[in-house]
Design a protein around this nucleic acid. Structure first.
Lengths: 208, 208
DNA sequence: GAATCATAAC
DNA sequence: GAATCATAAC
C-alpha cells in the first residue's frame, strides 16, 4: 500500500498505535502527527470508511460531520493548551492553535491538523513544510467547506504557493525571503522567549 | 574573501569574537565551532601567519608546534569535560573526546578539531558531516604527522570515503547503511541515555 | 564549509 | 508525506 494511506491504520486499529493516540471513540481518533511541525501537532480523523475518503475542502458540507468535528476540536484545543502548560510552562489561549486542512493533502485519509503556532520543530525541514501551514495552502477549519469556485481548490496553484511564497515569521511578520535556515533560528528564539517569559526557575539536583 | 578563510578573523582579532573564544594567548586560540557537530565542538588554531597556512597532515612535523599544541589540547580536554559535567550532568573521561584534523579541510586556516563523541547536534545534517568525523577522513591528532605516502593524503580517496562509507553508530557500531535520519534518531537516544544514566532530578518551580 | 533547490524511489 | 543524493552560487 502506498505511503498515501499511512494514516489508515490509526482509524482501523487505534489500540495498536500506543501513545500516538490522543483521543478515540467509535467515530473519531486524534493522533500525534508522527512528523510534528510544531511543538504540539495533532491530526483529527473521522474513522468512517466513507468519510475518510472525502476531500477536505468539501467534506464539511456534511453538517453533521462539521458539527461533530467542531465539538471535538473544542475538546482537543483544551488538551493542547493543558499540555503546553504542563510540558513547557506556557500559558496560552486558543488563538495560539491552528486548526485546518491542507488544500492538497499528501495523505489520503481525511484529516484535520491541530497545531500550536510556534512552528518550532526538528521536523520542520524546508520551505514547503513551513508554507504549507502559513500560506493559503492551509485552509482554516472555520472557512470550510470552500465554495467550489474558490481558487484554493486549484491544486497546482496551491502547491506553487508553498514553493514560491516568501518565508515570513508567524510571530512578527519578518520576511526571510527564501532563507529557511535563518527563519528556523528566528523561530527557535521566538519560542524560547515565550518559555522564558514564564520565568520558570529550573533547579537541578543530582541524586546519583 | 572566500568562505575558505572564514576562520582568519578568529586568529587575527579574537577579542572581537565575543563568547566564541574559549581560550586565547599570543600563539593560539580555541574557539567554538560555529556549526558544532557534537554537543561540544571546539577548534584549536595557531595564530602565526606561517603556521596557519600549513597542511594539517604535515604541519605537525614541526616538533615545537606539536609539543605546544599537545599541551594546549590537554588543557582544553579538561575544559570540555568540565563543561560536559556542568551543562549536561555527564561525567566522562578523555576517551569521550575526539581530537584530530580533516584530511581535506574546507577551511584554509590550520585547525584541530576537539569534540565530544556524541555526534548529537542540530547542525549534523548529512552523511558527509558524520563520516568526516567517523571515517579515516578524520585523522587523530596522535597519528600526526602522516607519512608522506599514507593513503590518507590522497584527497579524492578521502572525500569519497565520506560519501560512500556506511553510517555506523559511534557508540554501538550499528550499521545504518545510508539511512541518515535513522542514525540521527539513534544518536539522540544514545545521548539522552547517557544523560539519564546520571539520574538527574529536575525540579521546575514557577516563580511567575 | 553552509544553504537552496530539484529529483528519484518508496 | 519522508529521505537520499546531486548541484549551483557564496
Amino acid at each position: 500500500m502506498s505511503f498515501r494511506f499511512a494514516l489508515e491504520r490509526y482509524i482501523k486499529d487505534p489500540d495498536s498505535q500506543g501513545d500516538a493516540i490522543i483521543y478515540k471513540d467509535e467515530k473519531y481518533v486524534v493522533i500525534k502527527d508522527k512528523f510534528n511541525k510544531s511543538v504540539i501537532h495533532y491530526l483529527l480523523l473521522p474513522r468512517d470508511k466513507n468519510l475518510t475518503k472525502l476531500n477536505p475542502l468539501s467534506a464539511f458540507e456534511d453538517d453533521i460531520l462539521k458539527k461533530e468535528v467542531e465539538e471535538l476540536i473544542r475538546k482537543v484545543k483544551v488538551m493542547i493548551l493543558e499540555r503546553l502548560q504542563r510540558e513547557f510552562g506556557i500559558e496560552e489561549t486558543e488563538e495560539f492553535i491552528k486548526v485546518g486542512v491542507h488544500s492538497v493533502p499528501s495523505m489520503a485519509n481525511l484529516h484535520v491538523h491541530l497545531l500550536t503556532k510556534d512552528m518550532n520543530s526538528e521536523r520542520m525541514k524546508h520551505k514547503k513544510h513551513y508554507n504549507s501551514f502559513t500560506t493559503k495552502f492551509f485552509v482554516d477549519f472555520d472557512e470550510l467547506p470552500l465554495k467550489a469556485d474558490d481558487k484554493s481548490s486549484e491544486a497546482h496553484v496551491m502547491e506553487n504557493l508553498t514553493k514560491t511564497s516568501d518565508l515570513k515569521c508567524i510571530y512578527c511578520g519578518e520576511n526571510f525571503s527564501n532563507k529557511f535556515a535563518q527563519l528556523k533560528k528566528h523561530l527557535t528564539k521566538e519560542f524560547e522567549k515565550k518559555c522564558r517569559s514564564k520565568k520558570r526557575k529550573i533547579e537541578v539536583i543530582e541524586i546519583d
